[in-house]
Simulated assay, not measured.
Amino acid sequence: MHLVTTPRVTFLRQLSDGILEHYGRGRMIVAIDGPLRSGKTRFGDDLAEVLRERGHRVFRASMEGFHRSRAAQDVFGVDTPDRYYRYGFDESALRRVLVEPFRMGGSTAFVTAVLDPARDAWVEPKWVTGPADAILVLDGRFVLRSRLAELWDVRIALDGEPTDPADLLAYAESDPRDADAVVVDDRDPEHPALAPAGRR
């Protein structure tokens, strides 16, 4: 499939070429972080399409599919931005059913979502498999926090200052733009660009 060339697609092709320079064979994970409503999911979707255009098998996942249920979050106390930042996502499930089996390659199956946060309901696990050579594109809030950052082969941070209280806590503790990440200014989605050198 050949995508229609637009300034956004051209930028993503250039970004993909840079990513693929460091990718030989096997499994690779690209993680995308950024403040609330910064366009992480769209960016991940579009990047995945460009990587597919380059002939690679690509899977998509989002941290939205790895929320803890509201009941599980309540175990950690009252609903506050701090609780959401620290305990809103089930990182154990993320590692156990997605990252670790994906890394094993071959016919090992993995799951790309465990919860529908809009319904606060578990989703029936859909175990998927792929070839030994594949790329996973994962987007989500806090995905470049220090305790997760080393899981990813490529780290992309969408530029922008946090305004949501949970994001303010996260950025004060560990700014994703400083996590050895490629920093992308996507505030004009039709004309994304690499952020200035001081932000990369």
Rank of each mutant, 00 (worst) to 15 (best):
A48N: 04
L36M: 07
T41R: 01
Y85S: 06
R68P: 09
A93W: 11
D139Q: 04
H67W: 08
K126V: 11
T129P: 05
H56R: 15
S69E: 02
F66E: 08
D46A: 14
S38G: 11
E64L: 06
E53L: 10
Y85L: 08
A71Q: 13
V78Q: 13
R147H: 14
A93K: 12
D120Y: 09
D153V: 07
G130N: 10
M63V: 05
E150S: 12
F66G: 05
T129E: 12
T112M: 09
R141F: 01
L136T: 01
A149L: 09
D45Q: 14
M28C: 14
A134F: 14
L20V: 03
S107M: 04
A93E: 15
R57N: 11
D90G: 07
D46Q: 10
Y84A: 09
G24I: 01
S69Q: 04
L51T: 10
T41W: 00
I19V: 08
S62M: 00
R145V: 11
G65K: 03
L47P: 08
R54V: 05
Y87M: 12
I19A: 01
G44E: 02
A72D: 15
R25F: 05
G106E: 09
I32S: 02
L94K: 03
T41E: 02
R25H: 09
R54H: 14
Y23P: 01
M104R: 15
L94N: 01
R54N: 10
M28S: 14
M28F: 08
F76Q: 00
I135M: 04
R54Y: 07
F43P: 04
V128S: 13
L148H: 05
R145L: 12
L51K: 07
R95I: 03
F89K: 14
K126M: 10
F110P: 04
F59I: 06
G34H: 02
P35T: 10
L115G: 01
G24C: 01
P117W: 05
L144H: 01
R57S: 12
R68C: 12
A93V: 09
F102D: 08
P117Y: 05
L94G: 00
F142V: 01
P125Y: 06
R68E: 11
V137G: 00
P101D: 14
T112F: 04
P117C: 06
R25C: 03
S107Q: 15
R27Q: 03
V50F: 07
T80W: 08
G65H: 12
D120N: 15
P131N: 10
E21H: 06
V143N: 01
D90M: 05
R52C: 08
D139F: 00
S92D: 15
H22R: 13
I32M: 03
L98W: 10
D90C: 09
Q73K: 15
L144Q: 03
F76C: 08
G55C: 13
G65I: 02
D79S: 15
R25V: 04
L144Y: 02
R52K: 14
G24M: 03
R141L: 14
E64H: 12
Y85C: 07
G77E: 03
D74N: 11
S38E: 06
V30F: 09
S146Q: 15
D46N: 13
R25D: 03
D139K: 01
R25K: 14
W127H: 13
M104H: 15
G24H: 07
